[in-house]
Design a protein around this nucleic acid. Structure first.
Lengths: 235, 235
DNA sequence: CGACGCGTTTGCGCTGGCGCAAACTGCTCC
DNA sequence: GGAGCAGTTTGCGCCAGCGCAAACGCGTCG
């Protein structure tokens, strides 16, 4: 496990974190990146850990989950290819605010604090990119707050499914398939409901032909109807 | 109204946005700031507006609220003295993601996009500060997501009240008073419940002597008991 | 191939708190 | 000082969805 891999300089170009940078910058970043191939279900870090590196996904994905002082847990988000994560901690209290666990076999790159700050000093655009990425996530999380506060469980689950499809969807003959394995529990934790309610809702949709679900593999067959459920203000 | 005011160079020093900067930087920032004194209940900007400046509060406060495509509304946060807001939009789609309305008479400073970017170019620490501030808010919003998803209304309201006390609390003989006027509706919108439920809970606490509430002015008398309500995992 | 275990489905009862509606309080402005 | 209004309190009925519990696939491993 966690064996080192070769540096994929140009796969960094796809990442929003390095957008707008000259090739030389990408090479510098690639040169000091630590790249690892990780097995499924591996914990990259735990909430409260204080080592802190900046991470990014090249292939595969991770689940970012947060738990409170009581045991309660929510999934903050899923990170897919070309997305960064764990970076905010560098600038606040140097402690990861959540757990990160691989959803499948994953290729991950990471940088130490010194390396990232060095890169940012040489290429200030990276700092701007971080602000943009974090800002976008802030808005997304705020949208989730509004949804949790004002919408019914079914609408929230619809939003979650559509958001995941947009983020990690993959077109197939049957419809839009979501790349990584998704348990009902994950869906529930991200939509802010219980495993049971999520299961009932999904089963309902499956019977109505809106989507299929087999072996933690979701495929959306009728996006527009799901959209209607997600957006319909009535009910 | 909205008359110009004198530049308060050293009041910028208290702001996290300008932390770690040399006095010359503060003077530059003060020099290009637009400072205005605003009446109560004035809208600084609306969700979707695309002018976009970076704002900060010197005295007073604003309520940042977001509404969805349906009419539903939540209060994102209250901004008090020395806090910045509306800055993220500069780096994303140049549109304010929410409304901002003054809670009381307020002294506000703001910078145009060019001015802020210019300051950031000369003093990169400002960019780092922005990342730290936004990162902290991201964590706070994520905490709210967890609370909304897993906790009962009473615990959430307790958290909100304590958070506000920490953010804008002011010690008096009677206890900790919250500076700006707080309607039950605001409390409800921030805690993700209804005006009615929030009212019932507050009235209950007032009867139990945990706090007093008069004329939208909250004073906390028994912080530790509120903390117990907020943290107690049971129930 | 049978047993174990993880994830899922489904039934049933209970309740927190939402929705509606009406009365009340205390400023503010004429 | 009294009319009007913004904000608040309170009663009552109802239902979404949580909690508990049990059964059911389906893949995995000895």
């Amino acid at each position: 496990m966690t064996r080192e891999a070769q540096i994929p300089s140009q796969s960094l170009a796809a990442m929003e974190l390095f957008r707008g940078l000259p090739p030389s910058a990408l090479e510098s970043a690639a040169a000091c990146a630590r790249v690892r191939r990780l097995p499924k279900d591996m914990r990259l870090f735990n909430q409260g850990d204080d080592s802190v590196r900046a991470h990014a996904i090249i292939e595969g994905g991770v689940r970012i989950a947060q738990s409170g002082s009581d045991g309660a847990q929510v999934v903050i988000r899923f990170i897919g290819p070309a997305e960064m994560f764990g970076t905010v901690a560098l600038f606040t209290d140097k402690r990861y605010p959540a757990d990160a666990i691989t959803l499948a076999e994953t290729l991950e790159a990471s940088w130490s604090e010194d390396e990232l700050l060095g890169l940012m000093a040489r290429y200030p655009q990276i700092a701007i990119n971080v602000i943009r990425i974090i800002g976008k996530r802030l808005q997304e999380v705020q949208d989730r707050v509004r949804e949790l506060a004002t919408q019914r469980a079914e609408r929230r689950v619809a939003h979650v499914v559509l958001r995941l499809a947009r983020q990690a969807g993959h077109s197939t003959v049957d419809g839009t398939a979501i790349e990584f394995p998704l348990r009902r529990k994950d869906l529930a934790d991200i939509a802010g409901t219980t495993l049971h309610t999520a299961s009932r809702i999904l089963t309902g949709w499956e019977k109505a032909g809106l989507l299929t679900s087999h072996n933690q593999q979701l495929t959306i067959r009728n996006t527009s109807e799901l959209l209607r459920i997600a957006e319909n203000a009535a009910d």
